[in-house]
Amino acid sequence: MLEVNKDTFEAEVLQAEGYVLCDFFGDGCVPCEALMPHIHRFADVYGDRMKFVSINTSKARRLAISQKVLGLPTIVLYKDGEKVKDLIKDDATPVNVEAMIQAHL
């Protein structure tokens, strides 16, 4: 799974064609750590049909805020650079994330 940063986010996510799922996480965010292995698993299963990236918001705070992300973990699904759906905090469960992926395959 590709980890993007504040310099590559624009090209890898906002300029990308089709669906991109982005995992916004942060240093010291314990629920983010718990969710991350599931996102990696989904990337293995669905990665041939959807792009998966992650971004450490601790090093890209302004960028996260520009994407209206102000709480972690947040999983955002983009299509052609536009936000289609987001799952935030308690809603960002493995079950919900997989359902969101499957609904957009």
Binding site: G28, C32, R61, G71
Partner: peptide, 8 residues
């Protein structure tokens, strides 16, 4: 959750 979001 302060540990999650304080840094923002």
């Amino acid at each position: 959750c302060a540990t999650c979001d304080a840094a923002f």
